[in-house]
Amino acid sequence: MSRSYCIYCQYPQSACVCHALKPVTSNTEVVVMQHPSEVDHAKNTVRLLKLVMPQMKIYVGESAADFIELQHYLAAQTKPIYVVYPNEHSQTVAEAGASEAAIIILVDGTWRKAYRMLQLNPWLLNYPSLHLECEDESQYIIRKAKRSDSLSTLEAVAHTLIALNPAADIAPIFAVFNAMVQHKLTAMPALVRERYNGDKIKG
């Protein structure tokens, strides 16, 4: 039997997150370069982020040729542009003197795939890199990551926005995120759910 989907959030009716949706406005422009394997991933947080930040831009691809349109778009902008990705040259928002009137680019994929995308897109080196000072561990407990400092793309965007503007209201971003996580946990068999929650407690 086919599943019934919400016409707005596009999640199954049983996992609809519309009750948690509240649009977010920001002076910071968010651009996501998304690896193709993430587009239809059931736990893809960019999909959630787009629901609360409909103005954000998503470009899907892997190589530089896939992002020609994005390159042309960025070249025409006058705002400062930053790539949110930790590396040996990256700075915190404070160190970079970045303000909220900026464009931030995030690469959406596993660490391995994101790193490869950066290698295939050397034009990104034209822009300064930012890394986050975030003491809180990721709350994305339903998707495992090899690195302890991993954040979902949604979390990375939220923390960057608050770093750029401490008065930014990021609560709606986490509201829809938590709604999705709870739906996923509730749908799990009890023993599996206990393991995920146990990992969160131990973390």
Rank of each mutant, 00 (worst) to 15 (best):
M1L: 13
I7W: 13
Q10N: 13
Q10Y: 09
Y11E: 14
Q13F: 11
A15R: 15
C18H: 07
C18W: 03
C18L: 07
A20E: 05
L21T: 07
K22R: 15
T25D: 13
T25C: 11
E29R: 15
V30T: 06
V32K: 04
M33N: 06
H35P: 09
E38I: 09
D40G: 11
D40A: 14
N44H: 06
T45C: 05
T45G: 05
V46S: 10
V46P: 00
R47P: 00
K50Q: 15
L51I: 02
V52C: 01
M53P: 04
P54G: 07
M56P: 05
K57P: 01
I58V: 15
A65T: 14
F67P: 07
Q71M: 12
H72N: 15
Y73T: 12
Y73G: 02
L74M: 10
A75W: 08
A76I: 03
Q77I: 01
P80M: 05
P86R: 08
H89F: 12
S90F: 03
S90T: 13
A96Q: 10
A98E: 05
A98H: 01
E100H: 13
A102Y: 04
I104K: 04
D108A: 08
G109F: 01
T110G: 05
T110W: 03
W111K: 07
W111R: 05
Y115T: 12
Y115D: 11
Q119H: 10
L120K: 13
L124S: 06
L124R: 07
L125F: 10
P128N: 08
H131T: 09
H131L: 10
C134M: 11
C134Y: 10
E135H: 14
D136A: 15
Q139Y: 11
I141H: 04
I142N: 02
I142P: 01
I142A: 00
R143Q: 00
K144P: 00
A145L: 00
K146R: 14
K146D: 13
D149P: 04
S150G: 02
L151M: 08
S152A: 07
T153G: 02
T153R: 03
T153Y: 00
E155L: 00
V157K: 03
V157G: 03
A158H: 04
L161P: 07
I162V: 15
I162H: 12
I162Q: 15
A163L: 08
N165P: 01
N165W: 02
A167L: 13
A171L: 10
V176L: 06
Q182M: 12
Q182Y: 07
T186G: 09
P189N: 13
P189T: 10
V192H: 14
Y196M: 10
G198T: 01
D199F: 14
K202N: 12
